[in-house]
Lab assay of single mutants.
Amino acid sequence: TETYTFDSEDQAEEFAQRAQKKGYTVEKRKENGKFKVRVE
């Protein structure tokens, strides 16, 4: 499980979609103005 942090929602969304296409489970959340994407 890895967590990635992005400054913009667009970046987080793009990353999450790519990860989902590769078959990963993706969980997105906003925390302290940053966008976190957890991938497993």
Rank of each mutant, 00 (worst) to 15 (best):
T1E: 10
T1N: 10
T1D: 11
T1F: 14
T1W: 15
T1Y: 14
E2M: 15
E2Y: 15
T3Y: 12
T3V: 12
Y4N: 02
Y4Q: 03
Y4I: 04
Y4L: 04
Y4D: 01
Y4W: 11
T5H: 06
T5V: 12
T5M: 09
T5G: 03
F6I: 00
F6L: 01
F6P: 00
F6E: 00
F6T: 01
F6H: 00
D7V: 06
D7Q: 05
D7T: 07
D7G: 04
S8Y: 10
S8K: 07
S8E: 09
S8W: 07
S8G: 05
S8A: 07
E9Y: 09
E9N: 05
E9A: 08
D10F: 09
Q11E: 15
Q11V: 09
Q11K: 11
Q11Y: 05
Q11F: 06
A12K: 00
A12C: 05
A12H: 01
E13K: 05
E13C: 13
E13I: 07
E14G: 05
E14Y: 07
E14I: 08
E14T: 05
E14S: 08
E14R: 09
F15Y: 04
F15R: 01
A16M: 13
A16Q: 04
A16T: 05
Q17L: 09
Q17H: 09
R18L: 12
R18N: 12
R18F: 09
R18H: 11
R18Q: 13
R18C: 15
R18A: 13
R18M: 13
A19L: 14
A19S: 05
A19M: 15
A19N: 05
A19W: 13
Q20L: 14
Q20A: 13
Q20P: 01
Q20E: 11
Q20C: 11
K21E: 14
K21P: 00
K21N: 12
K21H: 07
K21D: 14
K22P: 06
K22E: 15
K22Y: 14
G23A: 01
G23I: 01
Y24I: 07
Y24M: 11
T25S: 10
T25V: 12
T25R: 11
T25M: 11
T25W: 13
T25G: 07
V26S: 03
V26C: 08
V26K: 02
V26L: 02
K28G: 04
K28Q: 12
K28C: 15
K28R: 10
K28V: 15
K28P: 03
R29C: 15
R29K: 12
R29N: 09
K30D: 06
K30C: 13
K30V: 13
E31M: 05
E31F: 05
E31H: 05
E31T: 04
E31N: 03
N32H: 08
N32F: 05
N32R: 04
G33I: 01
G33V: 01
K34I: 10
K34S: 07
K34Y: 10
K34W: 07
K34T: 06
F35A: 02
K36V: 15
K36F: 14
V37H: 00
V37D: 00
V37E: 00
V37N: 00
R38L: 14
R38K: 12
R38W: 09
V39T: 04
V39L: 11
V39F: 05
V39E: 00
E40G: 12
E40I: 15
E40S: 15
E40R: 13
